[in-house]
Amino acid sequence: MRMTEVSTKFEISQDTLRYYERIGLIPPVNRNKSGIRDYTEEDLRWVEFIKCMRNAGLPIEVLIEYVGLFQKGDETLEARKELLIEQRTQLLIRMEDMKKVFERLDYKIERYEQTIRKKEKSLTRSEN
């Protein structure tokens, strides 16, 4: 699959794909005879994984470390697992923080709605 198709499929810019490849987040992509990147199914799985992890807020540095460990093979299974467990813990903390913000926003919105209703009621009474 060509870069333009991958970019469209994953809604990632071509510059981002090049950047991910350059810094080692995705393995070097094979090129056809014309030098154009030709993404394999395995490449696409890496792109999907990295996009998913980035969307969850995992830092690029952590993902680079993970990919580096992956490339070293099975002797890094435990280290990869521990890295993912730590990131899951960090994500859970961020989710709890976001839940608090969400609840506070709900509270603030409800207060505004109450104030607006009171004001509308007051205006309706004064017009009568």
Rank of each mutant, 00 (worst) to 15 (best):
T4G: 12
T4D: 14
T4M: 07
T4W: 00
E5W: 05
V6Q: 11
S7Q: 13
S7V: 14
T8K: 15
I12D: 10
D15N: 05
D15T: 03
T16F: 09
L17C: 07
Y19H: 09
E21D: 02
I23H: 01
I23N: 02
I23P: 00
L25F: 03
I26P: 10
P28F: 00
P28C: 01
V29Q: 08
R31M: 10
S34Y: 14
S34C: 06
I36D: 09
D38T: 11
T40K: 14
E41M: 05
E42D: 13
D43E: 04
D43W: 06
D43M: 11
L44G: 08
R45M: 11
W46E: 06
E48G: 01
E48S: 12
E48D: 13
F49T: 13
F49A: 07
F49Q: 12
F49W: 14
K51D: 09
C52P: 00
N55E: 07
N55P: 02
A56W: 01
A56N: 05
L58M: 13
I60H: 08
I60N: 08
I60E: 04
L63F: 05
V67M: 10
K72E: 04
D74G: 07
T76W: 08
E78G: 00
A79Y: 03
K81T: 11
E82Y: 01
L84Y: 04
L84D: 01
T89L: 11
T89F: 14
L91W: 04
D97K: 10
K100G: 10
V101N: 08
F102D: 08
E103P: 00
R104V: 03
L105F: 06
L105E: 15
D106H: 11
Y107C: 04
Y107S: 10
E110Q: 13
R111S: 15
R111D: 09
Y112I: 15
T115L: 15
R117W: 01
E120G: 00
E120V: 11
E120R: 13
K121H: 09
S122F: 15
T124D: 03
T124C: 03
E127K: 15
N128Y: 06
